[in-house]
Each structure stands twice: as structure tokens, then as C-alpha cells.
């Protein structure tokens, strides 16, 4: 095992191996809270017999870190985590080994080693691309309506919405976090069209959730979308968001016929 040089205290510690992953949180696992996610990962890593590193101290915790918390109930194909191992986990070429140990709905899409000096994971994730999909009804009316409102929202300086919480309502401005928003109609073979909204929200700064964006656009006459997906996170480009780990660009404007192809 590779070893670090002795520290000032003379204790030799094994070199740690950091790995960053992009993973999904779909199906039933979208209801797993951020609070429970650490334990889900810890047990999955232990089941896969991966050499997970633990913190020192009285109550050792597995070195698994998440840059932020996805709201409970929201699905994602763009979750990220940093895992630390005491030996090379050999997952880069074979992320399926970890996927197999994770619950159904959670799959590792990309795993990359982290060279020394790489910026913190959160700094690689300045923004997220979100997709909000409505049921296959009213698309002919709903898409143009949301398009108009989206353009108006982008043109405005402020857009205050009320977030309802058990401990009291809170008013916040969604505009500073909103980088782009586009409504379009997705055609699905053998089914009615559905309205899809894609938006890019900044991760840094005050948290604005996609549900807040819905509040700004729905204005009481549009039903909340039943599915919200965090598609990907990373660098913002004029055309979309570039996956921080894989490098592929997820477009803001969906190819309406792609699904039919």
C-alpha cells in the first residue's frame, strides 16, 4: 500500500484515494432524504467490500461527502459525491460494481479519481440543469403560456415568490439564481404531448429550488409538475450545462423529436 511520508507527529497514515462519482437517484430512491443518504452509501460500500475510509475520533464517520441536499421526492440523473478510500477502489473502469451494491434506482454513471490540488467538488458544480415535466394534458396551451411567462421572468429584475414552510412562510427572489429557462413540448410516440420546462439554476448563492421557480411561473393557474429531475450539474454554457465529471453537455433546449427517434 502506498504510504504518505510520516506526519509531524511521526504517525504514518495510509494514502487516501479520493473518487468522485455522478450517480442517479430515481424511482423509489428519490424519497430517500439527504439525511439518510450517508448511511445508504456507507452500507452499500461495505456490502461491495470497498475500502472506505473513516474519520478519526470518537465516532468515526465514513468519508462520503455530498455537495448539497436534493429535496426529498425530487429525482435526479445528476447527483455527485466524493468518496474516500484507504486503498485504490478500482471503480473508475467499473462503476457497475458499486451500482450493484446501491439500492435500485441509484446507479453510478461516472467515477473519476481526484488528483491532488483539484478544486472542491462543490466548486465544479456552479449550476444545475433541472427538468420539470407535466402530465400529457393541455400541452398545446400550456407550453406557449409557460414560454411567455419564462421570457417575462428572464426580462424582469426581480421575481418574488412565497415559500411555504411548516415554520412559517418565507419570501424570496428567484431571479438572481435563474440563468436560463425554456418551455417546450415533448412528443412521445403513442401518447399525448407533454410540456417540459428546462431551467438552469445557480447552486451558489441563496438556494432557489425548482419548486420556487414553479411558484414564479404557475401563478395559480398551472398545476405543479408531478416530476422534477435534476438532470446534470456543472459548468454553464450558452447551450446547456456541461457535466462536471463526464464533460458531456446536456442541452437546455430539448430536441422535441429525439424521444420519437
Amino acid at each position: 500500500m502506498a504510504e504518505c511520508p510520516p506526519t509531524a507527529t511521526g504517525v504514518t497514515r495510509p494514502a487516501l484515494h479520493r473518487l468522485r462519482i455522478r450517480y442517479t437517484k430515481l424511482g423509489r430512491t428519490r424519497f430517500v432524504s439527504a439525511r439518510d443518504l450517508g448511511a445508504v452509501f456507507e452500507r452499500s460500500l461495505r456490502r461491495a467490500a470497498l475500502p472506505i475510509a473513516y474519520s478519526e475520533g470518537f465516532t468515526p464517520h465514513p468519508k462520503v461527502s455530498f455537495p448539497d441536499a436534493l429535496p426529498v421526492g425530487t429525482a435526479s440523473t445528476g447527483e455527485y459525491a466524493e468518496l474516500t478510500f484507504t486503498a485504490p477502489p478500482d471503480l473508475e473502469g467499473d462503476p457497475a460494481r458499486l451500482s450493484a451494491a446501491l439500492p435500485e434506482g441509484m446507479d453510478v454513471l461516472i467515477a473519476v479519481g481526484v488528483p491532488e490540488g483539484t478544486p472542491k467538488l462543490a466548486r465544479l458544480l456552479p449550476a444545475a440543469l433541472w427538468e420539470l415535466a407535466w402530465p400529457p394534458v393541455d400541452a398545446a396551451e400550456l407550453t406557449p403560456l409557460l414560454s411567455r411567462r419564462a421570457k417575462a421572468l428572464l426580462a424582469a429584475d426581480r421575481a418574488e415568490v412565497t415559500r411555504h414552510r411548516p415554520d412559517g412562510d418565507r419570501i424570496l427572489d428567484v431571479r438572481p439564481a435563474l440563468l436560463a429557462v425554456v418551455a417546450s413540448t415533448r412528443r412521445v410516440p403513442d401518447a399525448d404531448d407533454r410540456t417540459v420546462l428546462r431551467a438552469v439554476l445557480r447552486n451558489d448563492g441563496p438556494t432557489v429550488r425548482p419548486s420556487d421557480l414553479v411558484s414564479a411561473l404557475a401563478r395559480g393557474d398551472v398545476a405543479p409538475p408531478p416530476t422534477i429531475v435534476r438532470v446534470v450539474q456543472g459548468e454553464v454554457l450558452p447551450t446547456g450545462v456541461r457535466d462536471a465529471l463526464g464533460g458531456e453537455v446536456e442541452p437546455l433546449v430539448i430536441d422535441v423529436d429525439a424521444e420519437a427517434a
Binding site: 424511482g27 423509489r28 430512491t29 424519497f31 452500507r43 456490502r47 426529498v72 421526492g73 439500492p103 434506482g105
Partner: peptide
């Protein structure tokens, strides 16, 4: 699935355990 957003701790009801 469509109703779980309105209740506390929805993960109680989803199953999917190892």
C-alpha cells in the same frame, strides 16, 4: 407515488430495501 410528496418521511412507504 404521486401522494408521497404531501406526507412526512415518505421513505417509510417505498420499500426497495436490500
Amino acid at each position: 407515488e404521486g401522494l408521497l410528496a404531501s406526507v412526512q418521511r415518505p421513505a417509510r412507504y417505498v420499500g426497495g430495501e436490500h
